[in-house]
C-alpha cells in the first residue's frame, strides 16, 4: 500500500505491507533505528515518537494510518554534533544507563512539555481547568508511560526539569 509520511521534515513515500507498524516502518524500512522496540505492545514507551507534535507509541500504530502525517523521531531532534538541549541535559544528568529507553524518554518528554504548556490535565492535576505547573509529581506521573529498567528515574526528572523552563 502506497503511503506518504513526512519523517523528520522529509516526505517519504513507501509501498508497505498494510500490517507494518509505524515502528517497524521507521526501523526496518527507513533505517531510523533510534526508535526502540521494547515490547511491541504499547507497554514500555521505548518506541515513542511525535506524530503531528503529539507523542504516541509507534508500535501500536500501523504506518498506513499515517498517510500525510508529520512524524518526528529521535533522529529529527538533534545530532551528535548539535544536541538538542534536552539531549544535552540527559547526558549531563546521566539520565540513562543502557540507553535503550532513552530515545523514547526524550521524545516523550518533548511531547509531555507541550501537553503541560497547553494545560492538559493529568491524574496528578488538582484543578482540571487551570494552568498546569510542572511539579515533580506532575512530571513523574506524565512520564510513567516510559519504563526505564536501568531505573534512571531520578536523573530523568532532573534532566527534564533542567530544561523545562527554557523549552516551555
Amino acid at each position: 500500500m502506497k503511503t506518504t509520511i513526512t519523517v523528520n521534515g522529509e516526505p517519504r513515500t513507501l509501498d508497505l505491507d498494510p500490517r507494518t507498524t509505524l515502528l517497524d516502518t521507521l526501523r526496518e524500512h527507513l533505517k531510523l533505528t533510534g526508535s526502540k522496540k521494547g515490547c511491541d505492545h504499547g507497554q514500555c514507551g521505548a518506541c515513542t515518537v511525535l506524530v503531528n507534535g503529539v507523542r504516541i507509541n509507534s508500535c501500536l500504530s500501523l504506518a498506513v494510518m499515517h498517510d500525510g502525517d508529520q512524524v518526528t523521531t529521535i533522529e529529527g531532534i538533534g545530532t551528535v554534533e548539535k544536541l538538542h538541549p534536552l539531549q544535552q541535559a540527559f547526558l549531563t544528568e546521566d539520565a540513562f544507563q543502557c540507553g535503550y529507553c532513552t530515545p523514547g524518554q526524550i521524545c516523550s518528554a518533548l511531547g509531555m512539555l507541550k501537553e503541560v504548556a497547553e494545560n492538559w490535565p493529568s491524574q496528578e492535576t488538582a484543578n482540571l481547568t487551570g494552568k498546569i505547573t510542572l511539579t515533580d509529581d506532575e512530571l513523574r506521573e506524565r512520564m510513567s508511560g516510559n519504563i526505564c529498567r536501568c531505573s534512571a528515574y531520578p536523573q530523568i526528572v532532573a534532566a527534564i526539569k533542567s530544561v523545562a523552563g527554557e523549552l516551555a
Binding site: E75, F90, Y100, T102
Partner: peptide, 11 residues
C-alpha cells in the same frame, strides 16, 4: 552518551 541520546548507537 551522545550516540545513545541521539538514537545512533546501533544495538
Amino acid at each position: 552518551g551522545p550516540l545513545k541520546v541521539t538514537g545512533t548507537a546501533p544495538y
